[in-house]
Design a protein around this nucleic acid. Structure first.
Lengths: 188, 188
DNA sequence: CACTTAAAAGCAAATTATTTGCTTTAGTGA
DNA sequence: TCACTAAAGCAAATAATTTGCTTTTAAGTG
């Protein structure tokens, strides 16, 4: 078979990507985000600035790329015994993480990259959907009632995110619980 | 009274601000947003780049400043006879405007400015709240039932915005109507 | 295991954007 | 009208970005 696949060499790629990502994370933890520049990242990562420019285009794209990685959940939602409490637990944690300083900064980075190709924001939304999906599936396996995933996104995730992004006050824990409550027809 | 108020001269300010804003709007309508640079804006506006750098700091802040202005509603929500239809009408229009190319770009600009001082995103949220408030007040004057403004934000505005920002598919008209429907206890 | 290939990295010069110190201009209040 | 000061202009210095060209390196091939 000799139709040349367009998988091409480019072997150092992974290594460079890893060291650049690490450099970004390190610098971001040490200094103010608008002091971080591409030449600085390049030096820290031990690569040439032009490498970064050519691979990522600009700082925004690079920051978005790093942020998406960091926003990827590292574990499925905790199993607390019932779907409702799984969701409560997950939503509170989600709200906390996203409302934190670094969380907000990462969301901003993701949203402000235009990257029509990369669809960064879409990826984040996808991670969230997967998490909710996992809770929903556990509910089904247990034979519990559980709302549609899209409904959970509309009624729990969206308000949390809207308040974090646009409002001065991030949602309190009580607020998050009340959002979840609306989804469950009757008492506990 | 001679305690010097800290209102200081700075008279050309308004004129410069107007011409810079106009230049930004004009350029944005003519070319791709990432071809727009501060030196270009400065030339178009007939000012010096350093003036812009000193007043706005960087391109993001300037774009955010212009975007906030443009996102300000120019009229109160249309009075269509009933609160529910006012809200339906307003929400559909809001969703359309925000989901459009320019709408999305403006939201992105607003969100990606850090401006801890300016609170750009907060202003936008404020405009939205005012619009919903106006509908709510009309409802009250007519003696109609109407949900709490914050509830409308959680259940209608937030899902619309979340889907526009994070999801690939902006909300359809039917989707928007179904969001409004949930807020009204029973049939029309 | 050479050896070829092409994507990705390095390098450096050219271009462009940003910052900064100093000077000038023009509203404002006396 | 005059003095005052915030904001604008100007230009030199610095920093970031782009670009053409060369070099390196992981794969795939024989």
């Amino acid at each position: 078979m000799n139709i040349r696949e367009n998988i091409r060499p480019g072997g150092r790629s992974a290594r460079v990507q890893a060291s650049v990502h690490k450099a970004v994370r390190d610098l971001l933890s040490k200094m103010d985000r608008n002091e971080v520049t591409i030449p600085l990242i390049a030096t820290e990562a031990g690569v040439t600035p032009s490498t970064i420019y050519r691979r990522w285009g600009d700082l925004q794209e690079l920051l978005a790329d790093v942020a998406v990685e960091r926003l990827r959940p590292d574990a499925p939602p905790k199993d607390t015994g019932s779907a409702r409490s799984d969701l409560e637990h997950w939503a509170e944690q989600y709200a906390d993480e996203m409302a934190s300083g670094p969380g907000r900064a990462m969301i901003r980075d993701v949203l402000s990259s235009v990257g029509a190709d990369t669809r960064n924001a879409g990826k984040c939304c996808g991670y969230t959907r997967e998490q909710v999906q996992a809770i929903a599936e556990r509910a089904r396996d247990r034979g519990e009632e559980f709302p549609d995933v899209e409904t959970v996104i509309d009624e729990v995730v969206a308000p949390i995110m809207y308040r974090i992004l646009f409002d001065d006050a991030p949602p309190t824990s009580a607020k998050v619980l009340s959002l979840v409550e609306r989804l469950f027809p009757q008492r506990r």
